[in-house]
Amino acid sequence: MSAMSPAKKVFKDGLWTNTPIFVQVLGICSTLAVTNNLRNTLIMVLGVTFATAMGNLTLSLIKDFMPRKVRMIITVLIHSFYVIIIDILLRAYAPAISKQLGPYVGLIITNCILMGRAEAFAMSNKPWLSFLDGLANGLGYGWVLVSLALIREFFGFGSVLGFKVVGENFTPWTIMVMAPSAFFLVALALWAVNTYKAKAEAAKKGAK
């Protein structure tokens, strides 16, 4: 591991070793809420990645001037600033999507990934690395969300990105677009990832 440059390590952590959703169990709320439709999910992922990366960068730049006591509220305010930018852009260029996502755009502010990364990483690292960490965590969150959305939209509506991909005879699995399936799918994915990791670990130990 020591051979890896810090930037690479940050990316590996964000995307796999320490993915926000599976390992840190952060940001579950929006994971579940927006993943019944791939297009909305992509927008959401872009938004979260942007806000996490920029939030981390900003916080890391100003962390030395910030009194410890008020850091929580300052963190939240910085995040709201970036989320407002996202919200305005969405309203201007994609009003339909903005309407569908409803409160979930605003809720990026309280997505635990943002706060979690700010506290755990940006507070103690250099700006550039923090920016990369935000990016990596956003993308780590993203691939999980996109895969979930693919499954849910395919089975729930028989479509991908809004295009019908199966024949007329296909009966949509309504449960897939409803709330419970999101919980089940995340649990199944978590199970698979954990089992795989445990096996990899065991193999490593056996090799030694």
């Binding site: 419970p180 919980f183 089940f184 649990a187 978590l190 199970w191």
Partner: peptide, 13 residues
Amino acid sequence: GLKGTGITLVTIG
């Protein structure tokens, strides 16, 4: 592999 968060999610489901 399902312990902790996993089984909790299933329960919530």
